[in-house]
C-alpha cells in the first residue's frame, strides 16, 4: 500500500485509538464547543432587514467578546438577543444614548443633522417624528430601508441586550 511508505501520513489519517489519542479528541471537542459558543458563534441570516449588507441565508460568525471592553459606536452592526441567545436580531447602531433620532423623507436625522449612510442602497420614504434615546440604550435600524416602515423591526434597545458583533 502507498501509505505504508509514509508512516506519518498513515498515523495522521488512521491514528491508533490509544487513551492519549482519545484524550486529545475529547480536549479538542471541549475546546471547540467552548470557543464556538462563547467566542465565535456561527449564525445564518434569516430575513431581509439587513440587505444588502447581510443577505438572507448568508453565513457569519458572531464575535461575542466584541463589546467586553468597549461600547458600540454609531455605524457598527450589532447582534441583539431576545429571550435567549439562539435567535438574534442583526441591526446597525445609528444613535447613542440621549441623542435625538428622526426620519424625514427617508433621511435619518440624528440630533437634527442628516446622517450619511453609505450602507443604505435602496430608496426610502420613511417618516418618523423625533424621539430621544434613553440612557443605557442604543437606537438600532436595519440597512434595508426599502421595506415599509411598519414591517421593519427597529428602535431603541437596552445596552444589556447587545450580544456582540458579526466578525465580517
Amino acid at each position: 500500500m502507498a501509505l505504508d511508505r509514509y508512516p506519518c501520513l498513515r498515523a495522521f489519517l488512521f491514528p491508533r485509538w490509544t487513551p492519549l489519542y482519545l484524550l486529545r479528541v475529547a480536549a479538542v471537542a471541549v475546546f471547540s464547543l467552548l470557543f464556538f459558543t462563547f467566542v465565535l458563534r456561527p449564525f445564518v441570516v434569516r430575513g431581509s432587514s439587513m440587505e444588502p449588507t447581510y443577505p438572507d441565508g448568508s453565513f457569519h460568525f458572531l464575535l461575542r467578546p466584541r463589546y467586553l471592553l468597549s461600547e458600540p459606536r454609531r455605524g457598527e452592526v450589532v447582534a441583539v438577543r431576545l429571550a435567549g441567545e439562539r435567535v438574534i436580531l442583526l441591526k446597525r447602531v445609528v444613535a447613542l444614548e440621549e441623542e435625538d433620532v428622526a426620519f424625514r423623507e427617508g433621511v435619518l436625522y440624528v440630533n437634527g443633522r442628516p446622517l450619511t449612510e453609505p450602507y443604505v442602497k435602496g430608496p426610502c420614504d420613511w417618516e418618523l417624528p423625533p424621539r430621544r434615546v434613553e440612557p443605557g440604550h442604543l437606537y438600532v435600524v436595519g440597512d434595508n430601508r426599502s421595506m415599509p416602515l411598519e414591517q421593519h423591526d427597529f428602535g431603541q434597545v437596552s445596552r444589556g441586550r447587545i450580544l456582540g458583533a458579526p466578525l465580517w
Binding site: L82, A83, G84, E85, R86, V87
Partner: peptide, 20 residues
C-alpha cells in the same frame, strides 16, 4: 426557542421564550 420556566404559587408557570 430558549424557554425559561419559573413556577409561581397555585400551579402557575411563567415562561419567557423567543417565538418565531
Amino acid at each position: 426557542y430558549d424557554p425559561v420556566v419559573d413556577f409561581g404559587p397555585e400551579g402557575e408557570a411563567k415562561v419567557r421564550a423567543t417565538v418565531r
